[in-house]
């Protein structure tokens, strides 16, 4: 009990821990919400592609402005991620290339360009590109209050957009044909939803990095899916799971030495998925197993042929 009080006290008093926990909470909240759509639309892996594709944007933003202000770098990331998304959508719609191949090519090529630019910057600028490669794996410990504000502002935009077009996004995701019939601009709405998704991903880059960002998008939503069939409830739960994983990951990594924050958050969110898959009512694997066993025990009695054989 004392340990818990200590942790809660540290959460309020320790500047770094408070900042990291707040940042992780914002990240979990926004990616949990937007991730719901990515998972339901079977586009879970697009988050992975967008996160990787943000790297050249960060490098270019630095190369063009010479600034290391988080907002400037994130705008670069936003533009590059958005371009990658458009490229993936265009290639899959106008050619024989399937979605998975388009994702693979976009992810690795954008990342490769980013890497090339980063090493180029390193050579020419003379100075170390410190601060830039924190985006690779994320370094939550480097978060400052300004970063959290930036994240919160971008996150608010993403969540507002999602709330504003709630009905439209729902329809476009579940029944695009009907949406087109009643005259909704389906392609525009798809692009808008993707843009909000890019926004959500960019927010997390500094905390968990490009490699692990996709987990923050997919895992909370996949876990939430097990508990409900209702979109609103799913979004709510997904946001709650995202926040829970973010804050607990930040706390645990602050308690144990040499425990990087990003991976710890991902392990936390993976545990939430495992628990949900096992225990969620109706769908959970444990309930399924018990149900199967009960029905297999009941079968001989229910089967009239078997009854006749015994009598």
């Amino acid at each position: 009990m004392n340990a818990l009080v200590d942790v809660l006290y540290a959460l309020v008093s320790d500047y770094t821990l408070r900042t990291v926990a707040l940042g992780s909470a914002v990240l979990g909240l926004v990616s949990g919400a937007l991730g719901t759509y990515a998972v339901l639309r079977r586009q879970s892996l697009i988050g992975d592609a967008i996160a990787h594709a943000a790297l050249p944007g960060i490098a270019l933003a630095f190369l063009l402005t010479g600034s290391r202000v988080t907002l400037v770098l994130l705008i670069g990331a936003l533009v590059a991620g958005w371009l990658a998304t458009l490229a993936i959508m265009a290639v899959t719609q106008t050619s024989r290339i399937t979605f998975d191949s388009a994702l693979g090519v976009a992810l690795s090529v954008f990342f490769g360009v980013g890497l090339m630019l980063l090493t180029y910057i390193q050579q020419t600028a003379g100075a170390r590109q410190a601060g830039l490669d924190t985006f690779l794996f994320g370094q939550a410990a480097t978060l400052v209050t300004d970063d959290v504000w930036t994240m919160a502002a971008l996150g608010t935009v993403a969540l507002l957009g999602m709330g504003l077009f709630w009905k439209e996004f729902k329809l476009v995701s579940f029944d695009p044909v009907f949406a087109r019939t009643i005259g909704l601009p389906v392609r525009l709405l798809d692009t808008l939803l993707m843009t909000l998704l890019v926004l959500a991903i960019v927010i997390g880059l500094q905390t968990v990095g490009v490699v692990l960002m996709s987990a923050m998008l997919v895992a909370p939503a996949a876990a939430a899916r097990q508990w409900t069939d209702h979109l609103g409830t799913m979004v709510g739960l997904s946001m709650a799971f995202g926040v829970a994983a973010g804050v607990s990951g930040a706390l645990i990594s602050s308690l144990v030495a040499n425990l990087p924050t990003g991976p710890t958050i991902v392990i936390c969110v993976s545990l939430i998925v495992a628990i949900s898959l096992a225990l969620a009512p109706h769908r959970g694997l444990v309930w399924r197993y018990l149900r199967d066993r009960r029905s297999s025990l009941q079968q001989p009695i229910a089967d009239p042929a078997a009854q006749k054989g015994t009598s």
Partner: peptide, 28 residues
């Protein structure tokens, strides 16, 4: 195969977990 998550989501859950484990092992 459990049909609780789609295959793309399954990929998106499994590999970051493995990768995180690897990063933590290295760091620790």
């Amino acid at each position: 195969d459990t049909r609780l998550v789609k295959e793309d989501a399954a990929i998106g859950i499994v590999f970051p977990a493995f990768f995180s484990l690897g990063v933590i092992l290295i760091a620790r």
